[in-house]
């Protein structure tokens, strides 16, 4: 396993807003094809960290390398090699399924024939061929989320960042969504995911838990449960998060 390529390397990352330290000395490494769960209570500093990793904001200090590129000097290359999807931002509601795919394919510079070929492939896999020319607004939420994820990895990024991708989705669809995540991971895409569902933390290869801007625990779900003498991840999370001091 040592030979595996590290696609995210974070060393002593700090992000300060005035007096407030949102990210306090974060250090971790993520391997290619890993499913990495990034957990933490609201306000623990998750969103701040994701923004830095995606090249949307600069850290205050630290060495951060994403997909082989430096987040200070090579932001454009970082962005070209990642995908991003969140519960809030997904797809354009007033465009059809295919128009959305074509738009995102175009952004990443895919050729017309490439887009058509991959779009057909994608629609077949999601069983959405009949909905190709339907507006996104007419689709049920679960389909939208699955489609949004597929679009986020349409350009075969090295890493995909998922910010609470399954919020509010019904339990069956939620699991179908995880099928897609596993599938992507097997194809070598690194998955960086945040979630409020603790059962989903169990699906990750490794999980980090942030409290008050610091990573308080980072290991496989199995090891974490051992370490905290807990039956499930929910208990692990609660025993850590309860220690939080500045949850306002």
């Amino acid at each position: 396993m040592n030979s595996k390529q590290k696609v995210i390397r974070v060393k002593n990352m700090y992000k300060k807003f005035g007096e407030f330290t949102a990210n306090d000395d974060l250090s971790f490494e993520i391997e290619a094809g890993e499913i990495f769960g990034f957990l933490g209570a609201n306000g623990a500093g998750k969103t701040t960290a994701i923004k830095i990793l995606c090249g949307l904001s600069y850290p205050t200090s630290g060495e951060i390398n994403v997909a082989g590129f430096d987040v200070y000097t090579e932001r454009e290359s970082v962005k070209r090699n990642i995908g991003y999807m969140s519960q809030k931002f997904s797809l354009y509601e007033d465009l059809t399924v295919f128009e959305n795919i074509r738009f995102y394919g175009g952004i990443y510079g895919l050729s017309k024939s490439e887009i058509n070929f991959k779009a057909n492939d994608l629609l077949k896999k999601l069983d959405l061929e009949h909905a190709r020319d339907k507006r996104i607004s007419a689709l049920p939420l679960g389909w939208k989320q699955k489609l949004a994820f597929s679009v986020a990895i349409f350009h075969d990024p090295k890493i995909v960042f998922l910010d609470e991708p399954t919020g509010g989705v019904d339990p069956v669809t939620r699991r179908q969504f995880w099928d897609l995540i596993y599938d992507a991971a097997r194809a070598g895409i690194t998955v960086f995911v945040t979630t409020h569902y603790m059962d989903e933390a169990e699906y990750c290869d490794r999980v980090s838990i942030m409290v008050d801007g610091k990573i308080e625990a980072l290991n496989t779900p199995e090891k974490l449960k051992e370490q905290f003498h807990a039956d499930d991840m929910d208990q692990v999370f609660l025993s850590l998060a309860r220690k939080a001091t500045n949850v306002e």
Partner: peptide, 10 residues
């Protein structure tokens, strides 16, 4: 409790 972390939820 939607979008609220599990500590606040409980």
């Amino acid at each position: 409790t939607t979008g609220v972390d599990s500590v606040s939820r409980s």
